[in-house]
């Protein structure tokens, strides 16, 4: 007789984290809550030995090593954890995939403060009409650089992390700086 398996703490955490990631990217600009603050939850839900990751923040290196992901240069990473992004030029090295395989584009996780700073207006899939988003802590010229680098369907997908709050910005979203 089959007994129903019980989810352990890691499974529950990963499931809730992925739920937040999936809905954050499905509804760009609307914050979702992670079960616990920080990148560790994202790493646990998404990364394993099959991944190549880049850590901008040295404190994340042990967490990534624990997941089994290879630590590589920015230009080879499929998951990039910048921590605070200091210079928009770093975006240029990130993988954008190809027209044939857009899934080779990287997922970028950047720490930012949600609800402060400059306002941008989002349109595109997942956005009901328009959404206005305030983000602080991004380097100068960030949005211009993103617009320049993304040639849909090539591009990278962004996750902004503020403590336990997460905002997703897929490559399909158009950003207008106000």
């Amino acid at each position: 007789m089959l007994t129903t398996p019980i989810p352990d703490a890691a499974e529950t955490r990963s499931n809730a984290t992925f739920d937040a990631i999936l809905w954050a990217l499905s509804r760009p600009g609307l914050p979702r809550n992670l079960p616990e603050p920080g990148e560790a939850a994202l790493i646990e839900a998404l990364l394993d030995r099959e991944c190549a990751a880049y850590a901008g923040d040295p404190l994340l290196i042990p967490v990534l090593a624990q997941s089994g992901a290879r630590l590589v240069d920015l230009s080879e990473a499929d998951h990039v954890f910048f921590g605070r992004l200091l210079d928009a030029e770093y975006l240029r090295a990130c993988r954008v995939g190809s027209d044939l395989y857009p899934d080779d584009g990287a997922t970028l996780v950047i720490r930012a403060r949600i609800g402060q700073g400059a306002t941008v207006r989002l349109t595109g899939p997942g956005v009901n009409g328009v959404v206005e988003l305030q983000l602080d802590g991004l380097p100068a010229g960030f949005w211009q650089e993103r617009a320049r680098l993304i040639r849909y369907p090539m591009g990278f997908d962004l996750l902004f992390l503020d403590g336990d709050r997460l905002i997703g910005l897929p490559r399909s979203t158009k950003v207008e700086v106000l």
Binding site: P5, I6, P7, D8, A10, E11, S14, F18, I21, L22, L25, S26, A45, L46, L47, D48, R49, E50, C51, P102, D103, G105, T107, P125, G126, Y152, P153, D157, P170, R171, S172
Partner: peptide
């Protein structure tokens, strides 16, 4: 495993679902 699939199978599917949503 909880939900039959093992954790690494789930992570792979999660990564692909993320990309699928980003490029509709």
């Amino acid at each position: 495993s909880y939900g039959f699939l093992d954790a690494s199978a789930k992570r792979e599917l999660r990564r692909k679902m993320v990309k699928a949503v980003c490029v509709p």
